[in-house]
Amino acid sequence: MTDVPLPYRVTRVRPETADTVSVTLAPAGAAAVAPFVPGQFAMVYAFGVGEIPVSVSRIGHRELVHTIRAVGAVSAALCALRPGEQVGLRGPFGTGWSLGRAIGQDLLVMAGGIGLAPLRPLVAAALAAPHAYGRLNLLVGARTPDDLLYAGRLRAWTAAHGPPRCAVAVDRPSPGWWGRVGVVTTLLNGARFTPRNTTAFVCGPEVMIRAAARELVHRGLAPHRIRVSLERNMRCATGHCGHCQLGGVLLCRDGPVIGWNRAEGLLSVREM
């Protein structure tokens, strides 16, 4: 273990869905963590409860936004935070999406469920440098319209036809649903990209990642140009606790973003 958490103050809490909130954090004192790049994560500490890895979903000058889903004791405590309360923060940890390696290429961003959170700053970075990349596609899948993160933003993007060229599909629509119905991979038909010159960024449940990456390979993307963000149990984030091993990969150090060329074999072995 290294470096203790720095105190960060909650400046804003924004409910995203029934079980997910976006929490904006700013340094409580003079000390701040080093700058994040999209795809990296922080260890966020809820006082007296514990610490979990959370990807960064917006990178401000000093502020960070984390979109957190209440699934365990720590995440539930973080989702219950109110403005003014403080948490501990360590980071940044892990590899980012490495957007810089995709300069000159079409970008294909595929998100499933909460997997959109770590991809949001990637989209922001690509939009901020419109001449550096080719076409920017954002394909999003969710369970229902009510489970959609950043719904207002996505709807505006979808209506504006890009950039990003955005399409959203849900498994089960509700009245008034404005997007598509089906799995996220079906949205690829409406995306605009040249497979040989495209980098894909994929995050979501592991089954969705596997299905999406296979389809992308089938469509002609090179496996190493499909960057996927994976998740395992994580305790220290500094490569010392051993929990986040996935074969030879220490996800906190070598991940969470790795190429499909490396991930495919690891995810194909059961209980790895």
Binding site: M1, V4, P5, L6, P7, A28, Y45, F47, G48, G84, E85, Q86, V87, G88
Partner: peptide, 17 residues
């Protein structure tokens, strides 16, 4: 033991090695 964390009455958090 890795760290000690304290929270003051007004909610300020401090963590020390």
């Amino acid at each position: 033991k890795v760290w000690d964390a304290d929270r003051t009455a007004d909610g300020r958090l401090s963590v020390a090695e």
